[in-house]
């Protein structure tokens, strides 16, 4: 029963993962859901491991979700955020990480504003590195929890039609969703204003809808992205009101759909901009389910990476008594 699927040292994105690796993470997350429902929400599997949550960008949901996951696996955790640390004194990412390594840590969870920061760090330190969002690159655990939530409700991802609506250009969530969902056989589309759809996105195997009505006509699942308010100042969209009028997911629009559509949103929501309150709180919204699943997914990733080094795989081959 030892794992047959090998994982590398790090999780920096879903782009490089195989079907088996992604499926294994989703499958392992299932039993971890139950741990969070127990009166004592803790198992000792990562006892003695030290994990640093290194957050260069503000985050509540992702950081807290990782922290719960770590604590429920009995790891010791330290949180370092951009403000109030030596980061503001100009210390480089690698220097910060090397100093942490000198204190004997085992894993780093990193959120950073620059694309590629997680991989940059992973290549330079021996600890496991988990990407909790790097610039406009990837947010793999968010992609995985979205996939788990869709699979929970639809049974499978294979052949399901998922449309990601919103700012695709700047979204690491969109990228991780596209890589993961297409890898597992889902049909993926994106929808948003032309200024926020990257050129050549079709090369990733997705189709593009210019109008949200078309997306709703086609999709079984809508993953509605947060519209970063600073995009308006940068001139990508004329106004929030106009965005809502053309791309907001509303009850009236969903009523035109030929079927019930599952609604996801990675949070935090701008109610009344990209999503209306009645949709966010409606019967087909699984937004809070995503949050619950996020803890289970992060537990699964931590568990699989913590035990996945080549030396351990070697020891497993030699055979250990159980």
């Amino acid at each position: 029963m030892t794992t047959t699927v090998e994982f590398g040292k790090d999780l920096t994105g879903l782009e490089g993962l195989s079907v088996d690796q992604i499926s294994t993470i989703l499958d392992v997350a299932e039993p971890f859901k139950e741990i969070s429902e127990r009166p004592i929400k803790k198992v000792p599997v990562l006892r003695g491991k030290t994990i640093v949550n290194l957050f260069y960008e503000p985050s509540t949901r992702t950081r807290v979700s990782f922290e719960f996951a770590e604590k429920r696996l009995s790891a010791d955790t330290v949180n370092i955020s951009g403000t109030g640390s030596s980061i503001v004194k100009g210390e480089s990412l690698v220097d910060t990480a090397r100093n942490l390594e000198a204190m004997r840590i085992d894993m780093v969870v990193i959120r950073h504003g620059s694309s590629g920061a997680a991989q940059f760090l992973a290549d330079r330190i021996p600890s496991n590195v988990i990407n909790a969002g790097d610039g406009q690159h990837e947010h793999p655990t968010q992609g995985l929890l979205d996939m788990l939530t869709i699979r929970d409700h639809m049974g499978t991802l294979d052949g399901r039609r998922v449309c990601i609506v919103g700012d695709i250009l700047h979204s690491r969530v969109a990228r991780s969703n596209i890589y993961g969902l297409t890898r597992l056989g889902a049909e993926v589309a994106v929808c948003g204003p032309p200024t926020l759809i990257p050129h050549g996105i079709e090369e990733l195997g997705v189709q593009v809808f210019k109008r949200v009505e078309e997306a709703i006509e086609w999709a079984e699942v809508l993953n509605v992205l947060r519209l970063q308010l600073e995009r308006m100042k940068a001139g990508y969209i004329p106004s929030l009101r106009e965005y809502n009028r053309f791309f907001g997911v509303s009850v009236a629009r969903l009523e035109q759909a030929p079927r019930d559509i599952l609604i996801l949103h990675p949070g935090p929501m701008n109610r009344g901009v990209e999503i209306d309150s009645h949709v966010a709180d409606g019967p087909h919204s699984v937004i809070l389910r995503q949050v619950t699943n996020g803890v289970a997914i992060r537990m699964a990733v931590l568990y699989l990476l913590a035990g996945g080094s080549p030396e351990r795989a070697e020891a497993a081959k030699k055979g250990t008594r159980s």
Partner: peptide, 10 residues
């Protein structure tokens, strides 16, 4: 865990 690695069937 550190000897035999994670088991995917839980």
């Amino acid at each position: 865990l550190s000897v035999i690695g994670p088991r995917p069937v839980i």
